[in-house]
Amino acid sequence: MSRAPRSVGPDGIVVVDKPAGMTSHDVVSRVRRLAGTRKVGHAGTLDPMATGVLVVGVERATRLLTYLVGAEKSYDATIRLGASTVTDDAEGALLEQAPAGAVEAVTDERVLAGIRDLTGTLDQVPSAVSAVKVDGRRAYARVRAGEEVVLASRSVTVSRFDLLAVRRSVLTPAPPAPAPAEPEPAAVPRVGEVQSGPVVDLDVSVDCSSGTYIRALARDLGAALGVGGHLTALRRTRVGPYGLDVARTLEDLGDAFAVLPIADAARIAFPARELDEDEARKLVHGQRLSAVGLGEEPTAAFAPDGSLVAIISETGPTARPLLVLQG
């Protein structure tokens, strides 16, 4: 009895405008169903609270994601000064609230000075509730299990940190939620009281290297100003060359699913080298080519018919294939 052939989805990139409340894995699962293939992955996690650009690879384009994960990213965010939280964002419980008078003493000039200090190359400690692995387990899983997690700092680059708007207000605490009838499952520990009192909300725009946590920028800015800080909104506007201008919602993709073909996606994301037939044949067989001065940066190599043959990198007098996509 013969087995029916597996349906194979198209090769290409889908730039999704992720909605709030979904994990990046949820988006990948949805794209798998729409594309008719399980070979789908993404280039950089977005928290459930966050929205915006999530670059998703389908079929052979999943192999390009390795070279897109490290691309510079851009975000629009809102930082709230006046309190710190367990998760460094609005989804976590209150840890500490600023003492009386401290928030009122935070001037725009102090905010701008704090932002300048967080621009450039930094040693940043990721949020404890992050996807960083500690002894094989995600940090957020350890925190939710009640463990205390201390992560090592890492070097990141914040190339742009612009203050767009400042809003000052006084929060009134919401009424406490009724106690659950049964014990809740293990989750992020609940600490402190409902936030109230004066706050300063900062709308900011950030360009940064891969691995930078915008939640940690909010936390560190609040700590430097002595009032605590956390993130209340986050929208990723760009991953490398892919921005919101080419992103599509899941609803739009459900109505008409399409990918950016793998060759077109590579032309946008990488420098290009045009090959002749002999060079293309050599790359397909894993052979090196003569360098043409493009350097070590990953480069997309295209056959005479415009198809993507490989991702290559030059070292000295030769160019070697990093990833071969034909043959």
Rank of each mutant, 00 (worst) to 15 (best):
G36Y: 07
V56A: 02
R30P: 01
T66S: 14
G21I: 01
M49T: 02
L46H: 08
L46Q: 08
V53F: 12
Y67D: 14
A61C: 12
V69S: 04
V55T: 05
V27F: 05
E59S: 06
E59Y: 01
M49H: 03
T23W: 02
V56K: 09
A61E: 09
L46R: 08
S24T: 08
G36L: 04
A35T: 11
G21K: 02
R63G: 10
R32F: 00
M22V: 02
G36V: 06
Y67S: 14
A43N: 10
G36I: 07
L68A: 11
A43Y: 10
V31P: 01
P48M: 09
V40Y: 12
A20L: 00
G70Q: 15
K39E: 13
V28M: 06
G70Y: 12
G52L: 06
D26M: 00
E59Q: 12
R38H: 11
S29G: 07
V31Y: 09
V40S: 11
G21E: 00
L46C: 06
L68Y: 14
T23E: 03
G44R: 14
S24G: 07
T23L: 01
G41S: 13
V40G: 08
T37P: 06
D26G: 01
T37R: 07
M49R: 08
T66K: 15
A20Q: 12
L68C: 11
V58A: 06
R60D: 13
A35E: 11
T45I: 00
V31F: 07
P48C: 08
D26V: 01
A50E: 11
V27A: 06
T62W: 13
T37Y: 06
R63F: 05
V27Y: 07
R33G: 15
D26T: 02
L65N: 15
D47G: 05
A50C: 07
L54V: 08
R63E: 11
R60W: 01
T66A: 15
R32E: 03
G36W: 05
V40I: 11
D47R: 04
T62K: 14
S24Q: 07
T51Y: 05
G36R: 07
R32T: 03
R30D: 02
L65H: 15
G44S: 14
T51C: 10
D47M: 05
G44I: 14
T23G: 05
T45Y: 00
V55E: 13
V40R: 13
L65C: 13
T45E: 00
V28E: 09
R30V: 10
V55P: 02
M22L: 15
V27S: 06
D47A: 05
E59L: 00
A50Q: 10
A50V: 09
V55D: 11
L65P: 04
V53A: 13
V56R: 09
M22G: 00
R30N: 02
D26K: 01
Y67C: 13
L64K: 08
V69A: 05
A35Q: 09
A61H: 03
G44H: 14
G70H: 15
M22D: 04
T62I: 13
V40Q: 12
V31M: 06
S29R: 09
R60K: 15
R32L: 00
H42N: 05
G70M: 12
V69M: 15
T66W: 03
S24R: 08
G52Y: 09
D26W: 01
G57Y: 04
R32W: 01
R32V: 01
A43H: 10
L64R: 07
T62M: 13
T51Q: 11
L64W: 08
V53E: 14
V40P: 02
R30I: 04
